[in-house]
């Protein structure tokens, strides 16, 4: 570094120096960064194994400089189960979208939670199928327009958007559930803290840890990044409140 300059910010070391393919303003980028910062700060790169889904984050392994497995659509929880059971002292996470985790992979998700599999779910809930071009997701809001719900989600026909954090917090063996977002710097800091908590609890073998991210998809929502932030505040957070749903007892921690 040049003399007289002070380094005040840099890419986390565990994020590769690769051009990121996410759309401008997409929270996937932010969440990748936060997650890898936590891995750096905890010094666990050598002990971390990730699972990426089928969805926009299918290429997460290009960006995260840790060992990774690419799972079939919806099966990340089963793949992570296989890894974690074989390598119980590693930090294992699955990083999944809402189509992946809450539609095609619902059974794998719920059963992994019910068994209390000791890995961390990072659940990017953007209310839409980003990768395939903006179709309705199990988490699309009532009345929200997508390419397959062009007149708005009709809950009479398709049911209400699934609240995964609320659902999985019912399982005894799930240790920690929090819904976060990264729409503001303050919320990003909370999201990072939640990721750190989750991995630390995992290290203490407390059970399943589940971080839901109320996320955005400017492209799929057909909004500017700025409009997507407003939509989050106006529409998403009222239905998907940001909060801790469950955390381990003080004495466990």
């Amino acid at each position: 570094m040049k003399k007289g300059y002070k380094l005040i910010y840099q890419r986390p070391k565990t994020l590769t120096d690769t051009r990121i393919n996410y759309c401008p303003g997409c929270f996937h980028t932010t969440m990748h960064k936060l997650l890898m910062e936590v891995v750096d700060e905890m010094g666990i790169q050598e002990k971390t194994v990730g699972v990426c889904p089928v969805g926009c984050s299918v290429f997460a392994y290009n960006y995260m400089n840790v060992d990774m497995q690419e799972a079939a659509h919806g099966r990340a929880a089963a793949v992570a189960t296989g890894i974690k059971r074989m390598l119980p002292d590693r930090y294992v996470f699955s990083y999944q979208g809402d189509g992946d985790l809450a539609a095609i992979g619902t059974a794998e998700t719920l059963h992994a939670c019910n068994r209390g599999e000791n890995f961390t779910f990072i659940f990017i809930n953007n209310g839409i199928y980003g990768m395939t071009g903006g179709q309705m997701a199990p988490t699309t809001l009532e009345g929200q327009k997508t390419t397959t719900s062009p007149y708005g989600r009709d809950v009479e026909k398709i049911g209400m958007p699934l609240k995964m954090a609320e659902i999985v917090s019912q399982f005894d063996r799930v240790a920690y559930v929090e819904r976060v977002s990264c729409n503001t710097p303050a919320n990003s800091r909370k999201a990072k803290k939640a990721l750190r908590n989750a991995l630390e609890y995992q290290g203490k073998k407390l059970g399943t840890t589940f971080i839901e991210v109320a996320s955005n998809c400017p492209s799929g929502w057909k909004m500017t990044p700025e409009e997507s932030l407003k939509w989050l505040e106006d529409k998403v957070f009222p239905y998907y409140p940001l909060k801790v749903f469950k955390k381990p007892d003080k004495k466990e921690v």
């Binding site: 099966r75 089963a78 793949v79 296989g82 890894i83 074989m86 794998e108 059963h111």
Partner: peptide, 21 residues
């Protein structure tokens, strides 16, 4: 390690994860 999975779909993907580990 033995897991009675929730389906053959889950079982084969546990194979993927564990075999990959």
């Amino acid at each position: 390690v033995l897991i009675q999975a929730e389906s053959e779909l889950a079982a084969v993907n546990m194979m993927y994860g564990a075999g990959g580990a």
